[in-house]
Amino acid sequence: MTGSAPIRILVCDDQFLVRAGYSTIFGAQPGLEVVGEAGDGQMAVEIAARLRPDVVVMDVRMPVLDGIEATRRLAGPDAPAPMKVLVVTSFNIDEYVYEALRVGASGFLLKDCLPAELVNGVRTVAAGESLLDPAVTRGLIGRFAARIRPDDPTRPDTGHPLASLTPREVEVLKLISTGLSNAEIAGVLVIGRETVKTYVSRILAKLQLRDRVQAVVLAYRVGLVTGRD
């Protein structure tokens, strides 16, 4: 990161020791800088608006304003200048994670992740990429998206949300939804990485989605993939 501006981070959690721990972890890494902390969701929104951090690390369960609503205000479709939000949560609040992703979070990590994973998560989100853990994301989104999708929407057809996609684009979307990177998708389909990148860009543009996280949510919601795939 020499010669580059550091990634500016706002840490949001209602527990002081958690905030202190995150700040210590980030502060020990080159190219990362904690510019502020917030103990509740409302404070997170206000401080983020003032400081404009590169990444907001957001807890879900917080007083005054919960992390989901705070994420919506910072990164949702109505946000005047959307920010990158990395949600950090626990296993026992799966539906909150799904909602956080749906309203604009760029990804999430579990609170028991390793420090290196937390640091990598911040760097990934700051770079404009989404953070999808294949082992966890598929189960979380699959279980809760299943509650709201139609009975049998597995085939794109006229009027279906995926009707605008070509068969190959649907195939790529399905692979994205398993958490594969562009390089891994290229290996599966035996095509170039740039070709995969082009497919991903077209998928996001056609479906009017912001990033891969939203693409995964949609794929589960319409039944293209399920948590059992």
Rank of each mutant, 00 (worst) to 15 (best):
T24R: 13
G27R: 06
R50Q: 05
G192K: 12
R61L: 13
G179H: 10
T166W: 07
T154K: 02
L224M: 09
T24V: 06
G21L: 09
L218P: 09
L110T: 04
G128W: 14
S164D: 08
D54V: 14
G223A: 07
L132R: 00
I148D: 09
F144S: 01
G107C: 14
M83E: 04
I191A: 07
G67Y: 03
V172H: 04
E169Q: 13
H160V: 03
I47N: 01
T137H: 06
L162W: 06
V34P: 02
D133V: 00
L32P: 01
H160Y: 02
F16A: 11
D152V: 11
T124K: 15
V216S: 04
I47L: 15
A135G: 08
T226G: 05
L218W: 08
S181Q: 12
K197I: 15
L173Q: 03
V11N: 01
D133W: 02
A145C: 05
V35K: 13
V103R: 08
A75C: 12
G3N: 09
L32R: 00
L86N: 07
V196Q: 11
G142Y: 09
A100Y: 12
P161G: 04
N120H: 14
A100S: 15
A186F: 06
G159M: 01
F16P: 02
L86I: 05
I9G: 00
D59L: 04
N120Y: 10
D78A: 13
